[in-house]
């Protein structure tokens, strides 16, 4: 690891200020960034840890019926505190990594990193959540910009994520057992006005909405509704864990499973 200065602000305002420094980088729970730093793939001059900011932690229901998760909330806390408020989200959080990773890794860190195989982006996109930063509110549909790329500007911090709660929802993850990321994962959310389906782990473009399935499931919410749909392997990730064809097939299979489990 290259040397850097470590800052641990106690408020959002302090963090925003610290991130204005030259080559400053925000640190969430560090479960991706610390291994990255160890590999010398990042060399910030200042690392601004967000773990000491109490106002960015916790889960609650807002006055307008949404579930708000603080950007610095670890997965284990979401798994526990969202259990009644949004069970599918809690189940997703409880299935990320392993228990020790869930103690540290945060929703804000996961979203800002936008790993193409991360779980949270699927929940955020399928729920039509809003990402609240220190500067603005970004709808999920405008947040994800492809693999490891988001709408966040330099120094912008995810303060909170607001989830509309669907009538029914489920996340089905085909787990890559070594990394514990999703080889492919599908989040299905059924709202009164329609169904949203978000796929992670499959596309080279990162998380995306499977609009054809949304249309079919809005017409008839049952697993068989997606049986006849074709998923093209074009643009799907191919690596030693699975071919593009394999992932394309998983998208359909996991969507059907999510509908059955919702």
């Amino acid at each position: 690891m290259y040397a850097f200065e470590f800052a641990r602000p106690r408020t959002i305002a302090e963090a925003v200020k610290a991130l204005k420094r030259d080559e400053a980088l925000a640190l969430g729970g560090g479960q991706t960034l610390i291994p990255t730093l160890k590999n010398r793939l990042a060399s910030p001059s200042v690392l601004v840890s967000l773990t000491g900011i109490a106002e960015m932690k916790g889960v609650c229901r807002t006055d307008d019926g949404m579930v708000a998760v603080g950007g610095g909330t670890p997965h284990a806390v979401v798994a526990r505190e969202a259990r009644k408020l949004y069970p599918a989200l809690a189940a997703l959080a409880g299935g990320i990594g392993d228990p020790a990773v869930r103690s540290r890794g945060t929703i804000g860190g996961s979203l800002a990193n936008n790993d193409p195989a991360a779980c949270y982006p699927a929940a955020v996109l399928a729920s039509g959540a809003t990402i609240v930063t220190n500067r603005r509110k970004i709808p999920a549909d405008k947040f994800f910009r492809g693999m490891f790329s988001t709408a966040l500007a330099e120094g912008e911090i995810i303060i909170e994520v607001r989830f509309p709660v669907p009538r029914k929802a489920s996340y089905q993850k085909f787990r890559q057992p070594a990394s514990r990321f999703a080889l492919t994962g599908v989040f299905v959310a059924r709202f009164d006005d329609g169904v949203r389906v978000a796929v992670t782990g499959a596309s080279e473009g990162g998380v995306y909405r499977w609009k054809e399935a949304e249309k079919a499931l809005t017409a008839a919410f049952r697993p068989s509704a997606v049986e006849g749909l074709k998923v093209s392997p074009k643009g799907m990730i191919g690596d030693l864990h699975g071919t593009p064809e394999y992932r394309a097939n998983l998208v359909r299979v996991l969507t059907a499973r999510a509908v059955a489990a919702a």
């Binding site: 470590f6 479960q31 610390i34 840890s49 670890p74 284990a76 228990p99 020790a100 540290r104």
Partner: peptide, 12 residues
């Protein structure tokens, strides 16, 4: 809470 001590900075 259980954590992997190799993936937490001492100052954190």
């Amino acid at each position: 809470a259980p954590v992997k001590a190799c993936s937490v900075f001492a100052l954190d």
